[in-house]
Design a protein around this nucleic acid. Structure first.
Lengths: 333, 333
DNA sequence: TTGTACGCGTTATCAC
DNA sequence: GTGATAACGCGTACAA
């Protein structure tokens, strides 16, 4: 493939001049610029980004490590990250960690070696030594969606506390008293936050928090289904099942359907995390929606600030309750 | 950041030896190997992938250009591509072309400059000069999901012809006669193929193909909704609406729901392209499923063969009809 | 088995 | 305004 010196030879100038044309330097006559451009076209020249990166110490590439691109919430974030990055002239490498610390580390290592200019991580449960290294070595790093305790890393995330309070009040107002919660892992900041908010909100509404109505899942569909089954097998099953994320809602839904139960008459359902198709269900599912796209965009902006070595602040965006029909809502909201 | 020569100095050996350790060369004593490894750990050395790539002319990176990661079908393919690539020691850069030729070209150009080792493209309608260049210059290229006519590029895709015949026969057997089709763009190979298969299948079943029952959408939800509305406004509305992809099915579903119509009593619905949540709908949607994961995995394998300059064949996998309840199916299938 | 020296394609710093 | 040339960090032929 043609290199810069082939172009230089073909245009009868030096490689320095070609480089200047490439980088839109003003110190080049319009005439020679054209000559060089012609040579580039003639030789089908494509600048070698690898060589450029070696020289400039910048790859104009960002890394994004998420749990799973198949989860619509992550997909929406990833999409927004990509759009915002492209607008700023960056490309993004996506790594699916599958919530496994060792796979997350694999990507951290790989992306660090590829010398990405910055790293966006939705951290899994554990703080690994590699991530700590990353922080210490000062490579631009921003947490997305979740945080890791004890690490001084800016985070861009949604806060569901208010929305969960709204939801519990909403459920209470609808006359429900026995509400169960399928929580996420204690090890995840999002899991902790939602459980805490749920408990606080229940207390605020003077609602009983029964032990048997509180179980911990792993944010995957199967656990949602299994826990929903246990709830429904209880002598006094709950009137409402609230799930900590959309996948566990899916699992709960499957179990409810499999038993031939009707929503909301037999059991009501609400989910933290909204997904596009909840609205097409019958009845549409009442859910808490997170601003996934905004999170993604903010994350890129914050990360690029860090890349420029400017000081940054964490960003917390509110989640929001979307009332639909799965909790026994009537026409008048 | 520590480089190879810092490691060499720290270990008291030459850079060549360090390099040999890095690349697991057997011509190094276990003893010196350990010395070098220790030095690496001590200095928190991370090999510089950029420099290595410049030297070896390989980045161990693959490019994947798809329409939209938010489309569950693309997401599933992307996920599989990533998994397969990682297993082979590659990372993948994803570009969302949004079905826009100029954005597709943007990514082709960018990824070519980044010197990805191979490129996977789900081509949008038009053959751009850049893509032609790509083919001529012989850079490893594989089409995924769709093909472009007149270009000698291996493709990995699903063939829906048989499944569409199965579906039309199924619909016919159920007693429906007036069936409408919301097709995809003629410019897309998938759009053409599905329309042709639908028409063939209709003829095979001796079913009338009315002009007003055949309209072309753009594979996006909005067009599905608009066309469904026109179908339903007809003096003789169809008994079945069959959509060319999952997004247009979503649009049609919205329109049907908005009118308070019931599936399948008022109008039956079937979709090319299955998505996970179709099964959670009431009734679950009868659909044609494509082996998205297999397509992704095969694509990577074929592409890596091309990277190694081995001859390859295109891959065509069959799509498959999944009968559920949205066409008026009874318990006995 | 180990070390020396060159080159990969660019950008940047000097001269002119 | 343009040209010569030294880096950037690594892999490898060749010499020792």
């Amino acid at each position: 493939m043609a290199g810069i010196k082939d172009v230089a030879a073909h245009a009868g100038v030096s490689v320095a001049t070609v480089s200047r044309v490439l980088n839109d330097s003003p110190r080049v006559t319009a005439e020679t610029r054209e000559k060089v451009r012609d040579a580039m076209r003639a030789l089908r020249y494509r600048p070698n980004g690898v060589a450029r990166s070696l020289r400039t110490e910048a790859t104009r590439t960002l890394g994004l490590i998420i749990g799973d691109i198949l989860n619509p919430f992550f997909a929406a974030m990833a999409r927004a990250v990509e759009d915002e990055a492209r607008a700023a002239g960056y490309t993004v490498v996506i790594g699916n960690a599958d919530e496994r610390p060792e796979q997350q580390d694999h990507y951290v290592r790989t992306l660090l070696e590829q010398r990405v200019d910055g790293l966006l991580i939705c951290p899994t449960a554990e703080t690994t030594p590699l991530v700590e290294d990353c922080v210490r070595s000062g490579s631009p790093l921003v947490f997305l969606d979740r945080t890791l305790p004890g690490l001084d890393v800016p985070a861009v995330r949604a806060d569901g506390t208010e929305a969960i309070h709204d939801l519990v009040r909403h459920i209470h107002r609808l006359g429900h008293r026995r509400v169960a919660f399928i929580s996420g892992p204690e090890l995840l900041s999002t899991g902790r936050e939602r459980t805490r908010a749920f408990l606080d909100a229940m207390r605020e509404c003077d609602l009983d928090i029964r032990d048997e109505y509180l179980e911990t899942g792993d944010f995957q569909a199967a656990s949602g289904r299994a826990i929903a089954a246990r709830f429904l097998d209880l002598p006094h099953p709950p009137e409402v099942i609230f799930t900590g994320d959309n996948l566990m809602a899916l699992g709960a839904l499957d179990e409810i359907r499999a038993r031939g139960l009707r929503i909301p008459d037999d059991v009501a359902l609400a989910s933290f995390d909204d997904v596009a198709w909840f609205v097409h269900l019958d009845p549409p599912i009442t859910a808490i929606t997170q601003p996934a796209e905004e999170l993604g965009r903010h994350a890129v902006r914050v990360l690029l600030e860090r890349v420029e070595r400017r000081p940054v602040e964490s960003v917390v965006l509110p989640a929001r309750l979307v009332i639909r029909r799965s909790c026994g809502e009537t026409e008048s909201t």
